[in-house]
Design a protein around this nucleic acid. Structure first.
Lengths: 242, 242
DNA sequence: CGGACTGTTGATTCGAATCAAAACCGGTGG
DNA sequence: CCACCGGTTTTGATTCGAATCAACAGTCCG
């Protein structure tokens, strides 16, 4: 079990980082507390302080922030192998919510254990730091997305990003991937209304670039979809040598 | 000179981090190469690889990304004491532009020197990591800003944020601060058109919450401005103990 | 079967973009 | 000292993308 969890983490870490055998060993030895979560279950709430980090083993999670007038903005989507609250290692108060998007299996790793690992293995610390910087790079792209792209481009960009990230951990099959998100949550990712999300989805389907069947997304024409979204993968920093 | 640059960096670092005497010494000994920049001068371009980080000593800088259709989104604004391209330490290719907003004095610090410092003094490494996480926290808030807030709220939020950050390094006087930005650049920060920025500015002035005289911004009613922007300072993580 | 989400459709409104032009400002040079 | 210039700010008229409001259909599940 725990071995499986660590393996998921390692799969993700090695997308963007080089780790040697000792690093892998040390990570595999991390004590991880398993937990199962329901869809929409809160993992850590805005304002809370936590003593551990959450590793997603199976399912999707998201981070979000609510404004006073009740509207919500999703800040990031997280896939298996990611640690969406890695920042809590150094920022001790949450400035947003972390929630399960779908039913999830997650592992909790104590801050103390992670800190000890970082001290013992600087290369692992560097990898985690780099992961948190990639996180920030994705935030930057999302600022561009909601700030300057049309509704259609935004949505296309998000789909290509999710495909690219899932592909890197082997969770796609020729443009197809599981993406279990409601249109309402999509709207909160993109800064749009659900009604408009629904309409934009229809045009993407009508134009033959996307097929959706429940949670099964299929990007039928990746080049066209990338074009529509103005997608450039540089910001994902998936090449460990760069 | 170099001592002055390091002092500016230390002022900023100690807003959010605890550093001991040895840390301060080590930072003060960093070799820094001085440079003067004109307004709108490129510091590092999207796609470039750099060997050093840029410390702002005087003036303002910004990071921005351009979409294919030519529009631009500003991702962050940077004030004296900040290192806007700290991420280049671990992400070796730029995924956005870094430019001077105003005439700037900046110091360049070699990656090698910073990496040596991080190895020698883990507490400094932790401080820099934390700084980069605060950077990410600000990105998150900006996603909310452009994604879910009205034009007026966005602008108010940005003004309060800038005031709060400048205040922390002693660059405000009772709601007044120098903020030398054109309405066009403001528009690119907020995902708005310049025309609309101009109109929103007028309403803020008319409502008596803001006075602007060239680059001199004066928030006349901080509570009201914070209210309009829905501002909550938690995300700035200015308390080193949290 | 009924109820609660989720997705879909249509009609209407509204905030902000766009287009276009004028006013303003600081600097430069004749 | 004033005419001129480029950049910035301001104003008005119009258009447009997306939100809102409201209702209805589909699907899952107890």
């Amino acid at each position: 079990m725990i071995a499986n969890l660590a393996a998921t983490l390692l799969t993700k870490l090695t997308v963007s980082n080089r780790l040697d055998g000792e690093d892998v060993q040390a990570i595999s030895r991390l004590p991880i507390r398993l937990r199962h979560l329901q869809a929409q279950e809160m993992i850590i709430a805005d304002g809370a302080q936590s003593e551990d980090c959450c590793l997603i083993a199976e399912g999707f999670a998201f981070r979000a922030k609510s404004t006073i007038d009740g509207s919500r903005q999703v800040l990031s989507l997280h896939i298996p192998g990611e640690v969406p609250d890695l920042q809590s290692l150094h920022l001790h108060i949450m400035d947003h919510d972390l929630m399960a998007l779908t039913p999830c299996t997650v592992g909790f790793i104590a801050h103390d254990a992670l800190k000890a690992l970082n001290t013992a293995r600087p290369s692992v610390a560097a990898a985690f730091w780099r992961e948190s910087l990639i996180d920030a790079a994705i935030f930057r792209e999302w600022i561009v997305n909601v700030g300057r792209r049309s509704a259609t481009a935004r949505m296309a960009h998000l789909f290509v990003e999710m495909h690219q990230r899932l592909k890197a951990v082997g969770r796609t099959h020729e443009g197809e991937f599981a993406f279990p998100i409601t249109q309402a949550d999509l709207a909160d990712c993109l800064g749009l209304s659900t009604v408009h999300v629904n309409r934009v989805l229809q045009t993407l389907r009508r134009d033959g670039v996307l097929a959706v069947n429940r949670a099964d997304y299929h990007i039928l024409d990746m080049d066209k979809m990338s074009d529509i979204g103005g997608f450039d993968p540089t910001y994902l920093h998936q090449d460990p040598s760069l």
